[in-house]
């Protein structure tokens, strides 16, 4: 057998290494997305043998109806609360624990595990716990509120409150994950930079943070932002288990609407349109974050 040239052999190796994964990606990601994109222009229903081309009707229905608009604005509001709050809290907790490892390593480790628990736990199971905690008459929250002289609230069935309640649960769930990422980022900061900052007169708490910690956490922050944003956009479990989008669609979100239309009412065409809008939002957000922030984060 004739030996292949080195270039040919290297090309074959490359193909062999990257080929299967590429094929899987095309088959299981790109192709379904393309199909969903096509379906979004039809009135297809699950199980039906025929479908009609309806053009932009599905999109008009989603963007034009109060229900569709509400799902979008609810999702955006939820994201707008969860991203900044969980990133800021994650950073704050990470800074605290990082400092604490200096004088109480045991306690810091224990607290880290506690903060990470919500990430590791199943959100559906945790939702049951939240339901108990937030119960209008039995819940701890209202008892504490009453003891402090406040007025008990219907956290999950008050139309004006429910979305914020869900946002708080969302924050509670992501802070631990963000904290772990920030902790890793903090450990990676070269200690000489802090020394340099101290010699240069930036050794005080605030100037130390602004001169060294925050800029050096730039890449971590970008990653945390992207991950938090995608997770926040996908909010589903809490909605499905605690409120089912209610009361009166006050906590309806894009993914829950997608689930309801697609898997309860079997409107595959409409659900596909929701998916595409959801996809577009995520893409725009991630792209913007990377374009705007990456330039400022990698310092080249």
């Amino acid at each position: 057998m004739r030996r292949l040239s080195i270039a040919r052999r290297e090309a074959l190796t490359t193909l062999w290494l990257a080929g299967p994964a590429t094929l899987a990606m095309v088959l299981f990601i790109f192709l379904p997305v393309a199909i969903v994109a096509l379906l979004s222009f039809t009135d297809y229903q699950f199980g039906a043998t025929t479908l009609n081309w309806t053009g932009l009707e599905n999109y008009q229905r989603l963007l034009g109806s109060t229900l569709g608009q509400r799902a979008i604005t609810n999702t955006l509001l939820y994201v707008a609360i969860v991203i900044p709050a969980s990133v800021a809290l994650g950073l704050l907790v990470a800074l605290g624990l990082h400092r604490m490892t200096g004088w109480a390593p045991g306690l810091a480790h224990a607290l880290r595990a506690v903060y990470f628990l919500p990430v590791a736990a199943t959100l559906v199971a945790m939702s049951v716990a939240w339901q108990m905690v937030l119960h209008p008459s039995l819940g701890v929250v209202n008892h504490v509120l009453a003891a402090l002289g406040g007025e008990p609230r219907n956290w999950l069935s008050d139309r004006g409150l429910v979305l914020y309640t869900l946002a708080v649960i969302g924050i509670w769930q992501t802070v631990g994950y963000n904290m772990v990422l920030f902790l890793a980022g903090l450990v990676a900061i070269p200690p000489e930079l802090y020394d340099a900052a101290e010699v240069d007169g930036a050794g005080g708490g605030w100037s130390r943070f602004w001169t060294v910690t925050w800029p050096m956490l730039g890449p971590t922050t970008l990653f945390v932002l992207v991950v938090t944003a995608t997770n926040a956009f996908r909010v589903f479990e809490t909605v499905a288990t605690l409120t089912r989008g209610g009361p009166a669609f006050a906590s309806d979100t894009l993914v829950y609407a997608l689930y309801r239309e697609g898997f309860v009412y079997f409107k595959a065409g409409y659900a596909s349109a929701i998916t595409m809008v959801f996809f577009a939002f995520l893409l725009i957000l991630t792209f913007a974050q990377i374009r705007i922030v990456e330039k400022k984060v990698h310092y080249r």
């Binding site: 070269p190 930079l193 020394d195 340099a196 101290e198 010699v199 007169g201 050794g203 060294v212 310092y299």
Partner: peptide, 21 residues
């Protein structure tokens, strides 16, 4: 007195430049 108050300057082995500046 802190390093800054002593007004000493230090050059580090790794240079310790601020990468974002």
């Amino acid at each position: 007195r802190t390093a800054h108050e002593r007004n000493v300057a230090m050059v580090f082995q790794s240079y310790a430049l601020y990468p974002h500046l």
